[in-house]
Design a protein around this nucleic acid. Sequence first.
DNA 1: ATATTTAAGATGATTTTAGTCCTGATTTAT
DNA 2: ATAAATCAGGACTAAAATCATCTTAAATAT
Lengths: 149, 149
Amino acid sequence: MLQLTRDGEYAVRAVLHLAAHEDRVSLIHEISEAQDVPKSYLSKIMQSLTRAGIVKSRRGAKGGFFLARPAGSITLRETIEAVEGPIHLNVCLIKKGECPKDEGCPVHPVWREAQKKLFEVLEGKTMQDLVRDAEAIQKRNSRKLAQAR
Amino acid sequence: MLQLTRDGEYAVRAVLHLAAHEDRVSLIHEISEAQDVPKSYLSKIMQSLTRAGIVKSRRGAKGGFFLARPAGSITLRETIEAVEGPIHLNVCLIKKGECPKDEGCPVHPVWREAQKKLFEVLEGKTMQDLVRDAEAIQKRNSRKLAQAR
DNA sequence: ATATTTAAGATGATTTTAGTCCTGATTTAT
DNA sequence: ATAAATCAGGACTAAAATCATCTTAAATAT
Ligand code: SF4
Ligand code: SF4
């Protein structure tokens, strides 16, 4: 359907939450509530993110999740690909020869270009950028609210 | 999975075939063989394309399919959307409020930008362009073959 | 020890994908 | 008129993906 799955969407929310609270560990329960993601589902998402090396976890009391690397080094693309697998807008972008027509196909280069542009956008924003953007939006919204009273 | 479905891929192949043979009607059977698309599946695809006003059909002997409009006015985007429905890279792009968090979400604008870039690419090539590109590729390939002998 | 917290795997309902097949409607040729 | 050709529409299906949930095991702090 050419649309992000819940896996990808939830992964972004979770990593963004960790980036916004980089100073401490966050619990599944807490992320789930704050980001509106089903708890047991989120548990699976976090496992993928951990295996992908984007977040780290500690089990047991005082355990939880935290970023494995600085928020400024984590992009939307890698967060999504950590849970959805590599993005390929069309089968012919998986690898050469995956579509038997790729050599002489005039549409193939168009998909390559489209995917390149998509990646540029998804790699252009780090989690740090997004946390800052969120703060700016918050500020703008409360200013608007103040004006409206 | 953030990937084009067979519907979209087959639709593009079919419309491209019609664009490359704009002077005459093409049969399901013929498109199916030339473009390597299952015949009965293609039949459904052509119905969607007809309903979307991209191709026209004539039934009966001497019937078949042909472009409803000049190849230069048909883009990849509309061909794909004719069979897959409107493209939305994430649910929040479906319409305002579809995701309850969209107002304060820092990721939302990123998806808007990504989709805009995708559309620019998919609208930047018409079927006429693609037919010409295909011819150019053909010429290049046969020249290479001649050199190699 | 015990309470807390993640890891891993099994399970399952629903939807989407990727097709097939059959019947009917329409057009053309004879 | 009739037969042949060709698309239109709908029913049907198998397999995979999506979106979860639940249970048990392992690790950690106190
Ligand atoms: S665009 Fe061309 S190369 Fe890519 S899948 Fe379609 S036919 Fe194959
Ligand atoms: S990116 Fe933001 S607005 Fe879009 S679906 Fe995710 S949370 Fe909602």
